[in-house]
C-alpha cells in the first residue's frame, strides 16, 4: 500500500495540532464511542445485560481472542499478518494436554515453547526468505492443525483432569477470572512495550517505512522475527486457556477461525492493515465490541447469523474510516 499522504507544504509546518490529535486517535475514539454506545443500549434494552455476572462472562469469553489479537496487533503494525494463530493454539493445547502427567509446569512450558517456536519459524521464513506473510502463515495454519492432531494421538479429544491446569481457565483471583487477569496483564505489558521501549518504536517504524527503518540502522529482520514469535507465544497462551476452560483439548476445534476474530479486533480498534500505526488499547476495545454484539444478540434471541452481519458491517465501517486520506 502506498503512503500517498501529500506533504503539507504550508511552509511553517502547519500549526494544526488540534485537528491532528482528532484524526490520529479518530479510529480509537470511534471504536470506544461505539463500545460505550453498544453497552449503554444493551443496558437499557437487553434484560439482565447490566449485570456483574454478564460482564464477567463477556470478559471471560473475550480473553483468548484478546491475547491472540494483541500479538496480531504487533504483527499488523509491521505491515504483516499472522493467519497461523488458531493452529498454534491447537498445538499448544494438545502438547500441554498430552503431557500433563509429567507435571503442570513442564506441560505448560512445553506448550508455550512450541508456540513460540512456530512463531519464530513464521518470522524467519518471512524475513529471511522474503516470502509474503500471508502465504507463510497460511502454510503454518494448515500444517499446524495437522501437527496438533498428530500430537493428539491422531486427532483424539484429550481430556484434562489436572485441577491446577484447569484453574487457568476456570479459576478466580478474588472476583476476577484467572484468564481475565492474564489478559489484562498481557494488555498492560503490551501497552508499555509499545509506548516505552525502543522495540515498540522499531515495530512501528518497520511497518511505516521499511526502507527508511533499515537505513536508520534498525534491525528489520530481528524486529519481524520478534513480532511473529510474540504472536505465536500469545496464541499458545490463549490455546492453554481454551483447553483449561473446556477441560479438554480438541485439536480440530481449538482456535478455529480465531485469526479472523483477532484481525477484526485489530482493524476495528484502529491499527491499519497497512502497518505503521498501532493501538493496543484499540485492539482490546475492538475485541470487546465484537464480543458484546455476540453476547447481546444471543441474549435477545436474535439469530447468530445476524450478529455476523452486524460485525461485518462494523469492520467495513472501521476500514472505511481508516482509509488513506488523499487530498
Amino acid at each position: 500500500m502506498q503512503n500517498a499522504t501529500p506533504v503539507n507544504s504550508a511552509g511553517a509546518g502547519g500549526a494544526r495540532p488540534r485537528r491532528s490529535l482528532l484524526t490520529d486517535y479518530g479510529p480509537t475514539y470511534g471504536a470506544l464511542a461505539a463500545l460505550v454506545l453498544l453497552v449503554l443500549a444493551n443496558a437499557l434494552f437487553t434484560q439482565n445485560f447490566a449485570d456483574v455476572n454478564n460482564f464477567r462472562n463477556i470478559l471471560l469469553q473475550v480473553a483468548p481472542t484478546v491475547l491472540v489479537a494483541v500479538g496480531m496487533t504487533l504483527v499488523i503494525a509491521t505491515g504483516g499478518i499472522d493467519l497461523s494463530v488458531g493452529s498454534v493454539m491447537a498445538i499448544a493445547a494438545a502438547l500441554a494436554a498430552t503431557n500433563l502427567e509429567r507435571g503442570l509446569l513442564p506441560a505448560v512450558l512445553l506448550g508455550l515453547f512450541a508456540a513460540l517456536a512456530v512463531g519464530f519459524i513464521n518470522g524467519a521464513l518471512i524475513s529471511g526468505f522474503r516470502i509474503q506473510p500471508i502465504i507463510v502463515t497460511l502454510a503454518l495454519l494448515i500444517t499446524g492443525r495437522g501437527v496438533a492432531q498428530v500430537i493428539s494421538r491422531g486427532g483424539q479429544i484429550i481430556l484434562i483432569d489436572n485441577q491446577n491446569f484447569m484453574s487457568l481457565g476456570k479459576g478466580f483471583v478474588g472476583p476476577v477470572p484467572m484468564s481475565v487477569v492474564v489478559m489484562l496483564v498481557v494488555v498492560a505489558v503490551a501497552i508499555f512495550v509499545m509506548r516505552a521501549t525502543s522495540f515498540g518504536r522499531y515495530v512501528v517504524a518497520v511497518g511505516g517505512n521499511e526502507a527508511a527503518a533499515r537505513l536508520a540502522g534498525i534491525k528489520v529482520h530481528r524486529t519481524k522475527i520478534m513480532v511473529y514469535a510474540l504472536s505465536g507465544l500469545l496464541a499458545g497462551l490463549a490455546g492453554l486457556i481454551e483447553a483449561a476452560k473446556a477441560e479438554a483439548s480438541d485439536a480440530t476445534k481449538v482456535g478455529l477461525y480465531i485469526e479472523l476474530d483477532a484481525i477484526a479486533a485489530v482493524v476495528v480498534g484502529g491499527t491499519p492493515l497497512t502497518g505503521g500505526r498501532v493501538t493496543v488499547v484499540g485492539t482490546l476495545i475492538g475485541a470487546l465490541i465484537m464480543q458484546v454484539i455476540t453476547t447481546s444478540f444471543n441474549m435477545l434471541g436474535i439469530g447468530f447469523a445476524w450478529s455476523l452481519v452486524l460485525k461485518a458491517a462494523i469492520i467495513l465501517v472501521a476500514v472505511y474510516i481508516q482509509r488513506p486520506k488523499v487530498a
Binding site: 499522504t5 512501528v204 537505513l215 536508520a216
Partner: peptide, 21 residues
C-alpha cells in the same frame, strides 16, 4: 519520502530513530 521519513511517526520519534540504542 521513500527512504527517509517514517510518515506516521512524530517528529520526536523520527528524529531519535537512529539514536534509540
Amino acid at each position: 519520502k521513500a527512504e527517509g521519513i517514517i510518515p506516521e511517526l512524530s517528529v520526536r520519534e523520527n528524529l531519535t530513530l537512529a539514536a534509540l540504542p
